[in-house]
Design a protein around this nucleic acid. Structure first.
Lengths: 144, 144
DNA sequence: ATATTTATGCAACTTAATTGCATTCTGCTT
DNA sequence: AAGCAGAATGCAATTAAGTTGCATAAATAT
């Protein structure tokens, strides 16, 4: 994706165009896994930590990102698909966290199961898988 | 459950019998939902925060409790069933968090789905449902 | 009964995240 | 293009969750 596309994306989500937002968007679009706050802080150290936090939060508020909770307590952030509605954000796809490299991936082809709990209202559901990802498995047992 | 039962429980899990551990066990056994650290701190303020943290951690290490991650980042802790193995702790039941009262419940009758991801090893899975619990629903729309 | 091991309490520290405020920048109007 | 209002940024300080080190106290083993 190019600069003008990021600008459009921000405009579509009612966000002002700033250097930080462009750079953060760029990071998310040029990786195949979710990013933690620390990932961003390390790679975009020109910006103040507070600015990065606020950028992430405004992106979440405007539906550009979704927060992925995990067992370690340090959240990851993943891109929302363009066509994904408010409900889908949370009732939607499965996440995988690798216990070796720590990367969190969205699995858009796998959906959280629909569970019917009598007398309860279910608004969101999160399914998080932990284990060893493809890349780390290959490193452990290289294919000749 | 009575005092001597808690003592047995601790002994079975290779934990020394102390006042704090008995009191924490008692709290967990006299409620139907999972407890957060804050719940314990509020109700057992005689003990130092650090002691409570260490108590929770030793209980987890010995398989008395399991940690339940959630979207807010503040973990809850739930009792493990007596017969539950190491693997089951994580590949096991579903959790529900009420968005109104904040209580986290274990749903031992609902299990996380088994998902097969080609080229990945899945070691644990967490399924967390969020919504409105039975009690809160009744308060909103009282049954006459 | 005493020695050994473990748990507790306190203080200090680490890390993640938020808040207030002055300054700077963006997008809009003219 | 200049000016304005509202929003974003950077900095300092603060909150909150959780951990570590160490001296003292308590629990188990001998």
């Amino acid at each position: 994706m190019k600069y003008s596309d990021y600008k459009k994306l921000l405009k579509n989500h009612h966000l002002r165009i700033t250097d930080c937002r462009i750079d953060v968007l760029e990071k998310f679009h040029s990786t195949d896994h979710a990013l933690s706050f620390k990932d961003l802080e390390d790679e975009l150290s020109d910006y103040d930590r507070v600015t990065l936090y606020r950028t992430l939060n405004s992106f979440i508020d405007q539906g550009l990102l979704h927060r992925i909770p995990n067992d370690s307590g340090m959240a990851a952030y993943g891109l929302c698909r363009e066509d994904c509605t408010e409900e889908e954000h949370h009732h939607d796809h499965v996440h995988f966290k690798c216990n070796l490299c720590g990367h969190v991936e969205c699995l858009p082809n796998y959906h959280t199961p629909v569970i019917d709990l009598p007398n309860y209202d279910i608004e969101e559901s999160y399914l998080i898988l932990n284990g060893v990802c493809k890349n780390c498995k290959e490193e452990l047992q290289p294919v000749s």
